[in-house]
Amino acid sequence: MIKATVYVTVKKGVLDPQGVAVQGALQSIGFQEVESLRIGKYMELTLDTDDRAEAEERLKAMCEKLLANTVVEDYRYELEG
């Protein structure tokens, strides 16, 4: 078994309205130091394989095909186990 973690974030330069709204909320309750805030997605996957290279290759395909929309999002991942 390999555990994988995928992070999907809004691309730099693309407006993240959720992030802007939450940043505004933090500032309005006294956290003025919040200069920027981006909201993304965190996904945990359990992969039924012990072949790390294969797992990585297939995880990348999952990100490209479905988990992220690379027009507006970036992704990164971590493998463990």
């Binding site: 693309v14 407006l15 309205p17 959720q18 709204a21 929309n69 027009v71 507006v72």
Partner: peptide, 16 residues
């Protein structure tokens, strides 16, 4: 757009 039949993407409205 997700299917790639049209370019670009639709994001959350700026106003939320």
């Amino acid at each position: 757009t997700e299917a790639g039949l049209l370019p670009g993407a639709l994001r959350r409205n700026e106003s939320m």
